[in-house]
Design a protein around this nucleic acid. Structure first.
Length: 461
RNA sequence: GGCCCCGUCGUCUAGCGGUCUAGGACACCGGCCUUUCACGCCGGCGACACGGGUUCGAUUCCCGUCGGGGUCACCA
């Protein structure tokens, strides 16, 4: 059996949203799982709506998600001569005819069909008419009304359409330019696509396209129509992939989430890209559409964050610190160490950056959260902090263990519990009432900053 | 409206005639751990849309109803 070749074919009229990304992902997973090839085709024949920026944005998003395409992207607009050649062939072979019906006339036919409660099917009234040289026309592809067309869809199962429900579709505009349902067939065939994996919204196009494959004498690929994503809100559904990037999601987490929406592998929830490739099978794709759930997506992102190496986290979080106004050298050794202290506490890179910001600002720039300071930086606790500072100063080493020993020693001598000093010093050091474990956080912060910040809080100097 | 697809906890799902007093995950609610917040662990809440069949037996098969989605362009 020859190699599987699939394609993702976006029209560059906007950003890549989650639905499109998932279609791309399933294509990519299917290709990689079977050792096949994943191609891209930019469907930019609608020059009114297509833009280069949009193309760029879509390719960037795919790249960010890690879906590498195996051949240079095909631009549909560059293939128009081949499309026209195919059209000429159909004309020569008498498989198409000129239709002179005006938009108004077609509208009347549609209205009639609708009020009669029937499916509107163009009745072929122009087929066989003598030429009318002065009138504008479109080319219609003639489809036999006998029999039925069967799609053995890899996801939807067997879908049967009686041929009398398939109309003679228009394949070229009056200006001669070919239309989607026609060119998609030519392009898929010419690219050697073996499996067309696309959104379910294309399901009803499939019988028409099969008729065209037959008309052109081209081999018919296999089809797989994916269920659509149901957005809880249009905003959620239409957000571009880059917005998830900006919100601090990991590409692997986005892939993980959208893959699990409509696909599953037993009870497993967390998948790396490699596991996805390894375990993906079109047979496990559901037929029903799913809805977006932000909480779950955040949880999955957190799981991916937790599974990331500190080195990777450091590299990924640095830009977010930077855009938060904190410039940190990506090679700063405190960066991975700081990441370690907040790794289990963050759902996104944005959150992670916010939680570790305090490590990297000037000691005098610490801003106390009002509630936290009011609750914990009391006169009594300042006195404790003062005593603890002295104990810390005297600590021979600056390891988590040494710090813990020093603090515990102080608590014992002052006859107080750790909790009486832990929260106040957390506020003194971070400005917040919540955060990383006290001792490991102090190690990362460094002795000088710790002592300085503690003194500032206790009002010692 | 015609045609097509779908319908298990709020959400994502497991289930492919008996193993189902229906399993997992997110969220939610308790508890444990604990210097805070998390993480982790334990427990709880919570679903087979409805009605007919078929069958010794239906969440699983068939039909209908209801509900949801898609599609009916000289867009892609």
């Amino acid at each position: 059996m020859s190699k599987i070749r699939v394609r993702f074919a976006p029209s560059p009229t906007g950003v890549l949203h989650l639905g499109g990304a998932r279609t791309a992902l399933f294509n990519w997973l299917f290709a990689k799982h079977t050792g096949g090839e994943f191609l891209l085709r930019v469907e930019d024949t609608d020059s009114k709506r297509s833009t280069e920026e949009s193309t760029r944005a879509i390719l960037d998003a795919l790249q960010w998600l890690g879906m590498k395409w195996d051949e240079e992207p095909i631009y549909q607009s560059a293939r128009i001569e081949e499309h026209k050649a195919s059209l000429r062939r159909l004309i020569d072979e008498g498989k198409v005819y000129k239709c002179y019906c005006t938009p108004e006339e077609r509208q009347v036919m549609r209205d009639e069909a609708k009020s009669a409660g029937r499916t509107f099917i163009y009745d072929g009234r122009c087929d066989g008419k003598p030429d009318e040289p002065d009138k504008p026309f479109v080319w219609r592809f003639r489809i036999s009304k006998e029999g039925e067309t069967v799609v053995e869809d890899l996801v939807q199962g067997r879908v049967v359409t009686p041929n009398y429900e398939i109309e003679d579709l228009v394949i070229a505009r009056s200006d001669g330019t070919p239309l989607y349902n026609f060119v998609v067939v030519i392009d898929d065939a010419s690219m050697g696509i073996t499996h067309v994996v696309r959104g379910k919204d294309h399901l009803t196009n499939t019988p028409k396209q099969i008729a065209i494959y037959n008309g052109l004498g081209l081999p018919i690929p296999r089809f797989a129509h994916l269920p659509l994503i149901l957005g809880l809100s249009k905003r959620l559904r239409s957000a571009g992939i880059e917005s998830y990037r900006e919100q601090g999601y990991l590409p692997g987490a986005v892939n993980n989430y959208i893959a699990r929406l409509g696909w599953s592998h037993g009870d497993q929830e967390i998948f790396s890209d490699a596991e996805l490739v390894d375990k993906f099978d079109l047979a496990d794709v559901n037929r029903s559409e799913g809805a977006l759930n932000v909480e779950k997506m955040e949880w999955i992102n957190q799981q991916h964050l937790m599974a990331s190496s500190l080195e990777d986290l450091a590299v990924m979080v640095a830009p977010f610190l930077s855009s938060d106004g904190v410039e940190v050298d990506a090679a700063d050794p405190r960066l991975p160490a700081a990441c370690e202290t907040v790794q289990l506490r963050s759902k996104t890179l944005v959150e992670m950056a916010a939680k570790m910001k305090f490590y990297f600002i000037e000691d005098e720039s610490i801003v106390y959260d009002e509630k936290a300071a009011g609750k914990f930086l009391t006169e009594e606790s300042r006195a404790h902090i003062n005593g603890m500072t002295t104990a810390l100063e005297a600590s021979p080493d600056w390891t988590a263990q040494a710090i813990e020993d020093a603090v515990n020693g102080f608590c014992e001598s002052a006859d107080i519990k750790l909790k009486h000093v832990a929260q106040p010093s957390r506020v003194a050091l971070t400005g917040e009432a919540t955060g990383p474990g006290l001792f490991e956080m102090m190690v990362v912060l460094g002795r000088a900053s710790v002592l300085d910040r503690l003194r500032r809080a206790s009002g010692g100097e």
